[in-house]
């Protein structure tokens, strides 16, 4: 039987649930970028020049480089984004992508194909969802509150 590791090695990034993202053009003022992100429920933002991915701008960047610095708000998003993010190919193995995130503390891995097209943004949610669907009995079939879950297999407490 395959281990989960082996399973993830044969699974490709494009088979996972990729997260949604929003995008702005390079040079967009930070204030405008923030408004766009809020309108998109706080999704991570990919910064593009034309079609090309040049940076990524996330909550963490907001926390570390924007909030409390009013001067940053009117500057371009390029000044506060993480430039030249590491990306993965759609056929990168899910295991490789996971190690990459784990080793480098990446929280977003844009998925970009060989022609430079952006296909999605991979986050930890992709693995969380994979595990949930892979082990539905263990993970999905539960109540919200752990104390509502019977402690005995036959349903008793």
């Amino acid at each position: 039987m395959k281990s989960l590791k082996e399973e993830l090695e044969s699974e490709q990034v494009r088979h996972l649930d990729l997260s949604r993202y929003c995008a702005v053009q390079s040079g967009t003022p930070v204030r405008e970028a923030l408004a766009t992100m809020r309108a998109e429920e706080g999704r991570p933002m990919l910064v593009i020049r034309g079609e090309e991915l040049i940076g990524i701008f996330t909550e963490r960047d907001v926390l570390q480089r924007v909030v409390g610095r009013p001067d940053a708000l009117d500057g371009p998003v390029d000044a506060v984004m993480t430039a030249r993010p590491i990306t993965v190919l759609p056929d990168t193995s899910a295991a490789d992508a996971l190690w990459l995130m784990d080793d480098h503390h990446f929280r977003n891995l844009p998925v970009v194909d060989r022609q430079g097209r952006i296909l999605g943004d991979m986050t930890y949610a992709a693995f969380v969802h994979y595990l949930a669907a892979r082990y539905p009995v263990e993970v999905q079939n539960r109540p919200l509150r752990p104390q509502q879950y019977p402690s005995k297999p036959e349903g008793g407490d």
């Binding site: 989960l4 996971l98 190690w99 995130m101 784990d102 503390h105 929280r107 930890y124 693995f127 969380v128």
Partner: peptide, 14 residues
């Protein structure tokens, strides 16, 4: 989540 050491990778995949 996410945080190093709290990842699915650390939990279960290894």
């Amino acid at each position: 989540v996410p945080r190093r050491g709290a990842l699915p990778a650390q939990w279960v995949v290894v």
